[in-house]
Amino acid sequence: MGVDVFAIAAAALMALGFYGFVAQPHPLRRILAINIFGNGVFMSMILIARWLPDGPDTVPHAMVITGLVIAVSASAFGLALIRRQALNRRSEPGSTDD
């Protein structure tokens, strides 16, 4: 068996997420990068699930659903923090807190 084309996608999504996290340090961009990385991880889990001969293995599927909900909730918290940050800057121009 050769290289699964979806394995390329999984690896590339993780690599690009990794790159994005370092290269574009703005928090909003980091949230995008983190989620792209996460999607690569989920994709690799779905690939592993396909290896079970009797049909897709649902244990990794359940892990993807759990991981997805956690990632999105945490991202939503991050986005709320970004909005708060923007508001802080607007209310006291020229001052940041770290």
């Binding site: 290289v3 390329i8 590339a12 993780m14 690599a15 990794f18 790159y19 370092v22 690939l47």
Partner: peptide, 16 residues
């Protein structure tokens, strides 16, 4: 980061 992440992606692909 580019070199590191490319290496990481390649390693992932090989492992998978």
């Amino acid at each position: 980061a580019g070199i590191g992440s490319a290496g990481f992606g390649l390693a992932m692909l090989v492992a998978l």
